[in-house]
Design a protein around this nucleic acid. Sequence first.
DNA 1: ATGAAAGCGCTAACAC
DNA 2: GTGTTAGCGCTTTCAT
Lengths: 352, 352
Amino acid sequence: MRTKRVTIKDIATEAGVSIALVSFVMNNKADGKETYRVNKETAQRILEVAQKLNYQPNNAARTLRSGKTNTIGVIVSDISNKFFADIARCIENHAYKHKYTVLFGSTDENPQKLENLVEVFRNKGIDGLIVVPCEGADEIIRDIARQNIPLVLLDREVPDLEVSSVVLNNRRAGYETTEALIRRGFTRIEMISYSMGLSNIREREEGYRRCMQAHEMGENAVIHHLRHDKFAKIEEIIREARQRRVEAFLFATNTLAGQGLSAIFRNGWRVPQDFAIACFDTNEAFDIYKTAIAYVRQPIERFGTEALDLLIKSIEQRDKPGSCTRIVLTPEIVESAPEEALRSAEEAVTEA
Amino acid sequence: MRTKRVTIKDIATEAGVSIALVSFVMNNKADGKETYRVNKETAQRILEVAQKLNYQPNNAARTLRSGKTNTIGVIVSDISNKFFADIARCIENHAYKHKYTVLFGSTDENPQKLENLVEVFRNKGIDGLIVVPCEGADEIIRDIARQNIPLVLLDREVPDLEVSSVVLNNRRAGYETTEALIRRGFTRIEMISYSMGLSNIREREEGYRRCMQAHEMGENAVIHHLRHDKFAKIEEIIREARQRRVEAFLFATNTLAGQGLSAIFRNGWRVPQDFAIACFDTNEAFDIYKTAIAYVRQPIERFGTEALDLLIKSIEQRDKPGSCTRIVLTPEIVESAPEEALRSAEEAVTEA
DNA sequence: ATGAAAGCGCTAACAC
DNA sequence: GTGTTAGCGCTTTCAT
């Protein structure tokens, strides 16, 4: 037996006013403005009654009336990847404050799935989308923009498309992590990356390459390209690299780092004694930071908040000129102290 | 410039019928029934027009009218944990087929957050909830049940509460993984578990204990209890265990296994040469299976589908007697072949 | 077999 | 300052 939900009508009756007033007060309240055009006392009374009756606005009615669903869609590569999961949670929290509901979806780097998700979200009537484009989805993304659906790109970009985005300065991140390895005295540094044509990955590679060149080790620079559905090959790459006396690896993503470390350990090698590593992002299951010389800590929080803010702005001025903003976040490079990398085990015990 | 959305009215006009008829046809179509009480040809025509106009029903209107949101809430411990992420995706896919939208939330094992999520979801007007209870949330869960909100418990249960649930036979899983280690000749087997009072964890422990006793190694049985916010201690445990010549570990969860393996490797030990391990679930970042003697593969797919089916049933018969179903899934124990565990590295190369 | 019509709860334009 | 009212798109009962 479900207790009937409280409506503005109930409040109106109880407070002895019209439903319009109630509606008006409820909405102004939401804005936190103190400038009711309503009698202060009346407003106060309405608010009190609403509180007393535990009024919860009916979302469906609001949506039906206003045409705004207050729901946005977030499409990432893989919601179970720590990096995206963290961003997703951050967007969710931030959205909650702005009274938005968030729907999530993963593409698994498959443009077909992306297209399908966009379709599904559109049918659910989202007010806007935050999307991490995957390879081969450029046309689909362009289509969204063309349909004038508020859109913000995250983490990666689509060439020649005027749309808001939030990305990392990946070139710089690639450069500086490489440099950290060089500073620690390594010279035979190779990069393990994806064979996908994603903007962020390519920029990381370029950062690595430039840094190697800048330190006159350009001829040592090697980038191994893996297909993201063919991780097994990483083991082969590492064993082969070992024979060539490669000293350090820069991994282009957290997933690659996890796979790489796993392979290194399976072969009985130690980090950083046998291989030094640098990488991007965190990875909850594998505590890379105890072993990495340097890693890029991406400003997750800002990725989430900036993207959402841009999207909300874009939703609110749907018909306006449609300026688009590109936000480039600065990577934070976290380096382990020289001794620390070797001593991590001891420390862990001491502090426990 | 947003193109006006197509409504049943448009279809009615275009097809020369009333909106009531359109509505009727659209809904019967959804059921896949062929028994329209409508003239077959008329129905056909309406369907065609709807198709032609690319009609998409307005969810808000439907919800407002019917009181059903066709949205459910799923509350897990941590959506970025592989196990839960997989189940979540599975629920999502399955729900999509039934025209349900799914909202997700994570408790981080914090009952306060759980309570808050329930409140948020309730206000959004979900039709029902699938919940992974966390420690200390028993009363909150009971409250949901008391309010007659359709509810299904997942992975863990609440004592003395009559509510539907889908869980693993954890005792059996604990027993059989332990037995796999014993079969492989290990005798000094210890378990690393959480200090939380969760039904599933406790049953896994009991399975381990019983198995050890059944093989007359009850006095060897040791269960280390970790607080889930104090992982650093796992390193100490493992080092200390090493001194006591412990040969194998059974990890109670995938997170523990990840942390444990990470610690083992950091200390330069190898698996399974120095420590053999058995564990629960998968963990995408760290490919445990190449190293584990045995692991429990939980039937993710069934967790998701069974839970959703139970929930939908419960939603549809909200006022009915309210029978509750308890589904206990059988664990699948995956064992590596004896040689395989040692040879994994070689194999990976061969197949690459 | 088909249509008319009454709302679901809310917002916003307009009236007083 | 406050009230009236017309729908938003859909489902569903009751006529016809």
